[in-house]
């Protein structure tokens, strides 16, 4: 049976390893990757940069009513993480028994995000975990 897989494959480095962009001129780092720097516009080059994955919780929420692909795993916590490199990114925050609040220090972990049904692809992704 034909199933689409190019979409997840294309961004695999960002999904696994938090690879974002850095503007060659002003040094600003971005996640997700972007082609044009917000500060410098088009007259610069955007380089790939892996983020450390370490950061602090900027905001968080426990999702109780999930989207279809996440119905098995609800409730789960999501948040905005302010990475030590500067960019803020959204992600899952794994429950490891530690309290999650604004300012909580986190690092990344490698987990399954969702699967395309019983026979489809498994989507692996970074998640955040309180340190």
């Amino acid at each position: 049976m034909e199933k689409a897989s190019a979409g997840m494959w294309r961004k695999i480095d960002s999904r696994y390893n938090l690879v974002g962009s850095m503007c060659e001129r002003c040094g600003t780092k971005y996640f997700p990757q972007r082609a044009i720097c917000r500060n410098c516009g088009k007259d610069t080059k955007m380089l790939h940069r892996k983020m450390s994955g370490r950061g602090t919780v900027y905001s968080h929420s426990e999702i109780r009513v999930p989207a279809e692909a996440f119905k098995e795993s609800a409730p789960y916590t999501v948040g905005i993480i302010e990475l030590e490199e500067g960019p803020k990114v959204e992600g899952h925050i794994i429950d490891n028994g530690k309290k999650v609040e604004i300012g909580t220090k986190v690092k990344t972990a490698f987990r399954k995000m969702y699967t395309d049904g019983e026979e489809g692809l498994i989507h692996y992704h970074f998640k955040f975990i309180p340190e």
Partner: peptide, 24 residues
Amino acid sequence: QEWELNQGITFPGLYALMARRHMH
């Protein structure tokens, strides 16, 4: 879709993140 919904962050979830920060 790619960086919010694909990570299970629902639409109410986005406003919840704003609410939490506003409360903070």
